[in-house]
């Protein structure tokens, strides 16, 4: 059994394969941040961060760190060649205006109608939505990257029970068990990971889904 950390990296690695050459991508906080480590070198993918950076580079060496250059998580970053800084409303012009090709976000729950819940557990955890609601509405492609279950409980549901981040906006779900596509036809399993099987996915997924494993 791979460790939790290995599973998170496994998911991040699979997410990175979704990007096309030239894509502008905004990564959410948490697991999605790991995707930056697996960007395909043969493709030019540019990372945007909603606090006001286009062209987020690798974590700089301690001596090169500048506390006035951060990502949305407050981590010190570097800028790639051709990168730039801007203010919050320019950042959300990019995000809400449809100029971001893909966003990757974590989820507490996601359902077969493409609804996403990832910003609040009433009475328990109230971090706030930050930029997530705008990202999910505005990005051309919304990829949910998450562990398939939470303490054994399914997270891919028939209907989200937590307050939504956005309705009908999720295009793809990638977990350690497989890859699902979401569109007007509902939820379709398109890939089963080597860590899982169809029976395993059926028993850990509450939502109804079709199976269409074209590429396997």
């Amino acid at each position: 059994m791979p460790s939790k950390e290995e599973i998170r990296h496994f998911i991040a690695k699979r997410v990175a394969k979704e990007f096309q050459d030239g894509d502008i991508v905004t990564l959410g906080i948490g697991l999605p941040t790991l995707v930056a480590d697996y960007l395909p070198p043969e493709k030019h993918v540019t990372l945007q961060s909603e606090n006001g950076v286009l062209g987020v580079g690798k974590t700089p060496a301690p001596e090169a760190c500048d506390e006035q250059i951060t990502n949305a998580g407050g981590k010190l970053i570097s800028l790639i060649e051709g990168g730039c800084y801007f203010d919050s409303f320019s950042s959300f012009n990019m995000i809400r205006g449809g100029h971001i090709n893909a966003t990757v976000l974590g989820a507490l729950q996601v359902d077969e109608k493409g609804n996403l819940a990832n910003w609040v557990v009433p009475g328990k955890l109230v971090p706030g939505m930050g930029g997530a609601m705008d990202l999910v509405v505005g990005a051309q492609k919304v990829i949910v990257a998450m562990e398939h279950t939470n303490n054994g409980q399914p997270k891919i549901l028939k209907k989200c029970t937590l307050p939504l981040t956005a309705a009908h906006e999720v295009d793809m779900i990638i977990t350690e068990k497989g890859v699902f596509r979401l569109n007007a036809n509902g939820l379709t399993l398109i890939e089963i990971s080597p860590l899982s099987s169809l029976e395993d996915i059926r028993s850990t997924t509450e939502a109804d889904f079709k199976v269409n494993l074209k590429n396997q």
Binding site: E50, S88, F89, F92, R96, M133, D134, G138, P163, A167
Partner: peptide
């Protein structure tokens, strides 16, 4: 966040508000 930025921008620009799809269905 995008709504907050635009609400402040509207305040500074002499506008009454903005129309956004963000938050629909939530």
């Amino acid at each position: 966040q995008g709504t907050l930025a635009e609400r402040i921008r509207a305040g500074g620009a002499g506008l009454g508000g903005i129309l956004t799809p963000t938050g629909l269905g939530t």
